[in-house]
Design a protein around this nucleic acid. Structure first.
Length: 616
RNA sequence: GGCUUUGUAGCUCAACUGGAUAGAGCACUUGACUACGAAUCAAGAGGUUACAGGUUCGAAUCCUGUCAAGGUCACCA
């Protein structure tokens, strides 16, 4: 039982005795005492005014006296307004820290026997990964790590969007204009090569569209359909899709290719798998640079036909209904949503059908209790509909479905737009941050004295820490601004700052080992400075925080915690001496405390996918 | 237009999910190295939490309305 639980129980009995009233233990409000007041924990006594029929200050005084008399660990108390501040006896803090020194795998919750699947990344195979994917990947990876630490069995997965009209566009452009170019022949990374032809298709299509707009067909069309307040260019912008489907030659060819693909045409399938394999090789490199991997991949080309069977079942159970034209729908108006199509009139699947099928497939494969989809917030509605549908279908895991929705990443100049070439490419960004880290290192003249490989690895870890921390410290659901200059910062609330605190603490510990300092003397330490207590207090929050972050699917909580912890240690570093303290017991205690701090920091950062360097 | 998300210091973000005088970093001032490593620390300045009402002991947080920005309303994925 930890301190807050003991205090809560104490408050419960005190209130029962004093005011003859049973309070639910969950309703006892305990917070950490704010810095400007003395104390460690604060009990909010306002809720008791009704039952006690007294002023908050008096209640605080009475409950405080009862706690001080009844609980050994409460050394002292003071009351400010309706807040009862409790100071924990130093002996308890010391005892508590001694226990932590011995604890292995601090922060790891016991296995809870539940399986959770986390889907993230899930790219299209027609272009390379960009900054938006990085946020997705970091969130997904981190979420998986946190759930693991919280006691779940975690399966990391993605659905690879390897089929559809977009891929056919790349394929067609390559076929028409590629002249047999390959990653090997051109030296271009596979995903970039596929992206190159996707862009090329769009350019050619645009040119074709432009010419068509001058034809008599087009002129009559716009005359009949343009709205009075609409400009011509707006009209054509809106008409683009219709042109692609109804008039465009390139569109016609691309659609024909998609049909051939669906018909298993050998030549098209061959081209398709060749180009996709280029892309996969490219992706693999990027994933490796980001330090992530997956346990199981699902390919849309395998799952896009799934789900029809479930639709049939659902029709029998009247979850869905069929219209005269044969299309199948679900009516979600009772849940304040719309009617939604789940099967086209020609019997083919839509996005929703696929997702229903994929969920089912995954359940058959793994039997998970929960499923987390890391997908951008533009799909909020889609997932709301999907989850409600799964609930109505009676899927056993329906209650465990969660959409980890995150906001778009903006640049200081505004939105990333592929058309305007402002998309920040993932590979390039990774290269850039590592390069800035290297230049920083050179500035410090610290390049000497370490092996080249070791140095490169340290630089890489620092650069990646800066990038990753910058992105993951922001609450997922918020839209964020990515300023490249700030992302490579190493001062203040940054990844390298946290790494620095870690390196310091670990350095002290290693030096103590070298000097054969007797660490068991820590048991004799008895004074405990305020900065030390502050640090133990922060460390004590860690396991609870992991559970909270898991429950809220929110890695940013861990990121902010790690910063606070690093800051606490840096403060201690400046206020007291560790290896030069005057008593051997003090030295031993502080060395152990540093070790505990660095272990906790390393664990927390690992949950964010950030590696710690041995030196900096 | 319907539904939905967000709005906090000049900038980037916090605020233990309704608690105390809204906190950090960057940038700007000012102090602290002959290293347990200053990639650090200490201090200063910076706020009508978009706005207006309401709920209550207590609101950045909950409710209503207004404004602003984004998303979404395809037999696309």
């Amino acid at each position: 039982m930890n301190f807050t639980e003991k205090i809560a129980a104490g408050v419960q009995t005190a209130v029962a005795k004093l005011y003859d009233h049973e309070v639910d233990i969950d309703n006892v409000m305990i917070t950490n005492t704010r810095k400007e007041f003395t104390g460690d924990y604060t009990v909010v006594v306002f809720p008791f005014t009704k039952v006690a029929k007294k002023k908050p200050v008096d209640i605080g005084q009475e409950v405080g006296e009862a706690l001080k008399a009844g609980l050994d660990l409460v050394a002292d108390f003071n009351v400010v307004n309706g807040f009862l501040n409790l100071s924990i006896d130093n002996a308890y803090w010391l005892q508590f820290s001694q226990e932590l020194f011995k604890t292995e795998n601090f922060g790891q919750a016991p296995a809870n026997g539940k399986k959770v699947m986390v889907e993230f990344s899930s790219p299209n195979t027609n272009k390379p990964l960009h900054l938006g994917h990085i946020r997705n990947i970091l969130l997904g990876w981190s979420c998986a790590q946190i759930l693991d630490r919280a006691g779940y069995e975690v399966i990391k997965t993605q659905i690879v969007n390897d089929r559809g009209i977009a891929i056919c566009k790349s394929m067609l452009a390559w076929q028409k204009f590629g002249e047999g170019e390959t990653p090997t022949s051109s030296g271009i990374k596979g995903d970039f090569l596929a992206g190159k032809y996707y862009v090329l298709f769009e350019q050619k299509f645009k040119a074709e569209y432009k010419i068509w707009q001058e034809t008599t067909v087009a002129k009559e069309l716009i005359k009949d359909n343009i709205k009075s307040e609409q400009s011509e260019s707006d009209f054509w912008k809106n008409y683009k899709n219709k042109y692609f489907n109804n008039y465009s030659e390139l569109g016609e060819e691309a659609k024909a290719m998609l049909l051939k693909w669906e018909d298993n045409d050998p030549a098209v399938r061959q081209l398709w798998s060749t180009m996709n394999s280029w892309v996969y090789e490219g992706f693999e490199e990027t994933y490796k640079a980001l330090g992530v991997d997956f346990d199981k991949l699902y390919y849309e080309s395998n799952t896009y036909l799934e789900g029809k069977r479930i639709i049939e079942d659902g029709l029998e159970k009247s979850v869905f209904y069929k219209k005269e034209d044969g299309s199948v729908w679900i009516d979600l108006e009772s849940a304040k949503m719309d009617q939604k199509l789940v099967l086209r009139s020609d019997g083919t699947s839509v996005y929703m059908t696929q997702d229903i099928g994929t969920a089912q497939l995954r359940s058959e494969d793994f039997g998970m209790d929960k499923m987390v989809y890391v997908v951008g917030d533009e799909q909020d509605y889609h997932f709301k509909v999907l989850f409600e549908t799964m609930k109505r279908l009676g899927a056993p895991y329906a209650e465990g479905l969660h959409h980890l929705s995150y906001g778009m990443v903006d640049l200081p100049t505004g939105k990333m737009k592929s058309r305007e070439g402002t998309v920040v490419d993932a590979d390039e960004l990774i290269k850039d941050v590592v390069e800035v880290a290297r230049l920083n290192m050179v500035d410090r003249n610290e390049v000497t004295g370490k092996g080249d490989d070791e140095m490169q690895e340290i630089i890489r870890r620092i650069g990646m820490a800066a990038l990753k921390y910058f992105i993951i410290k922001v609450n997922p659901k918020k839209r964020m601004v990515f300023n490249p200059n700030e992302a490579v910062d190493i001062q203040g609330q940054t990844g390298p700052y946290i790494q620095y605190a870690f390196v310091r603490a670990k350095g002290v510990y290693e030096k103590a080992l070298q000097e054969n300092i007797n660490l068991s003397l820590a048991d004799n330490y008895s004074t405990l400075e305020p900065v030390e207590k502050e640090l133990i207090f922060q460390i004590s929050q860690y396991p609870g925080l992991v559970l909270q972050a898991a429950e809220g699917y929110d890695p940013s909580m861990i990121a902010n915690y790690c910063y606070g912890l690093a800051k606490g240690f840096n403060k201690l570093w400046h206020e007291v001496s560790i290896l030069n303290a005057d008593q051997p017991a003090t030295i031993a205690y502080r060395v152990k405390l540093s070790k505990l701090m660095s272990d906790t920091l390393k664990d927390g950062m690992q949950l964010l996918g950030i590696e710690m360097p041995d030196r900096m």
